[in-house]
Amino acid sequence: MTISRDTLHTLCPLHALLDRHGRIVQAGPTLIKLFDSPVQGERFLDLFEVYRPRAVTAMAGLLQTEGRKLHLRIRLGKRTSLKGVLFPAANGGALINLSFGIAVVDAVRDFSLTGNDFAITDLAIEMLYLVEAKSAAMDSSRRLNTRLQGARLAAEEQAFTDTLTGLKNRRALDHILERLKRTGSDFTVIHLDLDFFKQVNDTDGHAAGDRVLQCVARTMVELTRKDDTVARVGGDEFVIVLPNAMERERLQALCSQLIQRIEAPILHDGKACHVSASIGIARTMGKPVELETLSEQADIALYASKRAGRARFTFFDDTQKATLSQQTSAIAGE
């Protein structure tokens, strides 16, 4: 019985029909796709290396493998492995069927094969469905993981952000200070407290107070560097952390700008709200300092600014601590 060319293409899309010299006289459509070029007229053994059951170098040796499983690999390019079986054909030629022997996953990846490149009854079709299903599941999983990661980052950001001003909150500040402490590098802590903020809240209402806090926060962000941290740690209390050593003159200039900008009237519903800022500054100065101690030093310097008349800045020194206990209670209520 003679099998037509179209029938062979359908039943064995990955086949080669050889003449008695071992040249390909007919090739299945999938075989042609593997080489992306015509293969008719080429010697089969020039295209494929047969390495089991034994090395085969000529057509005579190839014919001796009749009915046995052949292990082959493509000689050039991606060196894809295949398995096949040989049957003698007319005039000393042979039919080699490779349709069930290609590594499906690798072939799909390397040669962009689809279900149309395999016989309808081939188990490779089922494997292709599994590969596609796995790919779709992995894509879905990646998208879900991306959304979950985004949600986690958003939740973390929300947990470290003051909702009114958009600044960092005390929890974020603690993390940043701990990280700076571990690095061992110098940094500066500026404690800023608004003067007369209570009067704004009492006279103009909490909406006006919120407007003032938002404007003050924007001012501090505008005057500080990208790597600096600005945090709201209380109702009208803010902390600025400046990593790396900063000269005293630069800190003075920064604090002067902060006070000047914050003293500018802030409009709310057509009415001007007036506040000022008192500032305390504490620096590590090349010495290991506990974070609690550094925070206390900035607080002491802040209250020194309050005692001196407000709307000013003060650098911490040890002489300030002696007089703090006598006046802290009265000043804190203002």
Rank of each mutant, 00 (worst) to 15 (best):
T2R: 11
H9G: 02
C12K: 01
D19T: 01
I24W: 07
V25R: 15
L34S: 00
P38H: 15
V39A: 10
R43G: 10
R43I: 07
G61I: 04
L62P: 05
T65P: 12
K69W: 15
L70G: 00
L72D: 01
R73G: 00
R75V: 01
S81A: 08
L86G: 00
F87V: 04
G93S: 03
L95V: 06
G101H: 05
G101W: 13
R109S: 12
D117A: 07
A124E: 00
E126S: 13
M127L: 14
L130K: 10
A155S: 15
Q158G: 00
T163M: 13
K168C: 02
K168Y: 14
D174P: 07
G184K: 08
D186V: 08
T188R: 02
V189G: 06
N201L: 14
N201A: 11
G205N: 07
H206D: 02
Q214S: 10
T219C: 14
M220D: 00
R225P: 07
K226V: 05
R232G: 00
V239P: 00
V241C: 08
V241T: 03
C255P: 08
Q257S: 15
I259T: 09
Q260Y: 15
I266D: 03
I266K: 09
G270C: 09
A272Y: 14
A277V: 02
G280S: 01
A282Y: 11
G309P: 07
R312M: 10
F313L: 04
F315Y: 13
D317W: 09
T319V: 07
K321L: 09
T323Y: 13
